[in-house]
Simulated assay, not measured.
Amino acid sequence: MDAFQAVILAAIQGLTEFLPVSSSGHLVLPQTLLGWADQGLAFDVAVHVGSLLAVLWYFRVEVAGILKDWFGSFFGGGQNENSRLGWMVIVATIPAVVAGLIFNDFIELNLRTGYVLATTTLVFGVILGLVDRYAKHTKHLADIGLRIALIVGFAQAIALIPGTSRSGITITAALMLGLSRSDSARFSFLLSMPIIAAAGSYKLLELIQSSADVPWDLLFIGFAVSAVTAYACIHVFMRWVERMGMMPFAIYRVVLAGILFAALAN
């Protein structure tokens, strides 16, 4: 990997990590169409840290309020909307963590293929479009209880399958359960923080245990570009999501799936 490739791959990661379009489906395109080598474990860690920093900074006020009230509930502060939301984020994170521990090796060995990527990109894109079109968007973050948190959490576990899109399937599940588009996206982004932190920590542990050389200059490029592009992407998405809905992303996923299938056929 050279500096140009690092910039492009980090930008792809940052722009697609939080959109409902499958970051893994996009990252495979440079490899398939241009013959680029796999970005490697160390680079994965760097761009994950960059994405995590971006979402934490964008939602810093909400995160600070949730943490303050969640910890405060243990010391006589009582339960409020923030502390309950903190519990719901924890509940919704558990299924994906458990599924990752159980199925990660199986998925890596059997499901990380081009055809799986293309198929899941297509199928879950169609489902996203249908749910966005026909679901009622009347509920808000305050309405999230155990049932909604668990269903969205199990949906997030399915995102371990390449091409599904973590943000895509959690937003789809939240929309299906009646949340507004903006609050579906907001809850999905809140859920991304512990998951990205867990995935990044797991990859970092793998990196420490490996004997691979660490190209620090490329890692810094990946971290910085991923952080900036992810923050910009979140900012634009949250401003426009209610107005444009999810249909543009559903259509885009169908087109992307077609490109992936065509590339695999050649």
Rank of each mutant, 00 (worst) to 15 (best):
Y115T: 07
A42R: 02
P95Q: 05
I94F: 03
F124D: 00
V47R: 00
L111A: 06
E62F: 06
G77A: 06
Q39R: 11
V63S: 07
H137E: 15
A142V: 08
R112W: 08
G125T: 07
L101W: 06
I102W: 10
T119E: 01
F71M: 13
D105H: 10
S51F: 03
L141R: 08
I66T: 00
N80F: 05
H140V: 09
G78L: 06
L109Y: 05
Y115C: 00
T121S: 04
H48I: 03
S83L: 06
F43G: 03
G50N: 08
L146F: 15
L111H: 04
D105Y: 01
T138H: 14
H48Y: 07
V123G: 02
K136A: 14
L56S: 11
L117D: 01
H48P: 11
N82K: 15
G100E: 05
L53K: 10
G114A: 04
G65S: 11
S73Y: 06
I94C: 03
V55T: 07
W70S: 09
L53Q: 06
L53F: 15
F74D: 03
F103R: 00
T119G: 14
Q39H: 13
V98I: 15
D132F: 04
L146W: 15
V98N: 01
V45C: 07
I107P: 01
L85C: 08
L101I: 13
L67W: 12
Q79V: 09
T138N: 15
Y134M: 02
I148Y: 08
V49R: 09
L41Q: 07
G76C: 02
D143I: 05
L146D: 08
V98L: 13
A92F: 05
S83N: 05
Y58V: 13
A54I: 04
H48E: 09
G145D: 13
D38W: 00
L141P: 08
S83V: 09
N104G: 09
G114R: 01
I144N: 11
A42Q: 01
G114C: 03
D44I: 04
F75T: 12
W57L: 14
A149I: 09
D44Q: 08
F106E: 02
L130T: 03
G40C: 01
